[in-house]
Design a protein around this nucleic acid. Sequence first.
DNA 1: TATGACCGCTACTGTCCTTT
DNA 2: AAAGGACAGTAGCGGTCATA
Length: 270
Amino acid sequence: MDVRGVDFSGSAAPGRDVWLADGRLDGDRLEVTACRPAAEAFGATARSPVLSALGDALRNRPGTTGLDVSFGLPAALLPAAVDDWGDAVAWFRAEFDGADADGMRETLKDRAREREGDGVELKRRTDRAVRANSPYSFITYYQTLYGLRELLAPLVADGAVSVPPMQPAGERTVLEVYPAGTLRRLETVDEGYKEPTDEAAAARAEILAALETASGLEVAVAEPVRERAVADDGGDALDSVVAAVAAARAAAREFEPPTPFDPREGCIYV
DNA sequence: TATGACCGCTACTGTCCTTT
DNA sequence: AAAGGACAGTAGCGGTCATA
């Protein structure tokens, strides 16, 4: 089975921030064969053409892809009429049609404040389980808006992809992943590896070694991929490889959910 | 109780290089 | 010589949680 990992970005020109890793899973053996930024994969740098090309890839290529984006919102912020994940994604797309990232964030924060006590940046069950940020925290809100509204929602609406564990896996399967959570599961370095220092480069090399020895799969990272993942000091190249490993692990375990989750919210595969 | 780190974005700065 | 574009680097944003 072909396996891919995507390190996503919601920036205005994400050609060098979105990275894609390609791999091949045979039984319990994963080989990560390629890794490159969106600009190289698609020949585009602006948001619209990059997301469009990425959507086409997910729509057309068989296999399993791990995508580093929140696939939903905390159930407390969904309308009562939304009772499954497909509805939640369709609702999000319609609710924030035309909204900018700041507008979406303020709307969700206001809605959270109207509720008694809970705080402002609410989390999903799966976010709590892997210690992820809220889907609309200042770190994540661009990713959530553009990843969910522009990329995932149209594919889900068309039935072009399957999204476990809410839906059974299919010919083209897309999963939510969270590289920092995968690093924690592997008990390896999970911070200080996204800096332009020698120490951070050493940390990236250590993470690659941990992926190969401790992931529960037999993982082989091709030498050119290893070089890029160590050299890219933003950590985006490495995160795409981690995303591919998480996707492969999920596939090897037949997409059994790794965390408790609310079926309206989504579930992170670590 | 205080601090620092975090799936990262935009806006602004300064530098270098090109064009007029 | 001055102006302007391309680009890299940095500050600021700002809520929560783990650690000290």
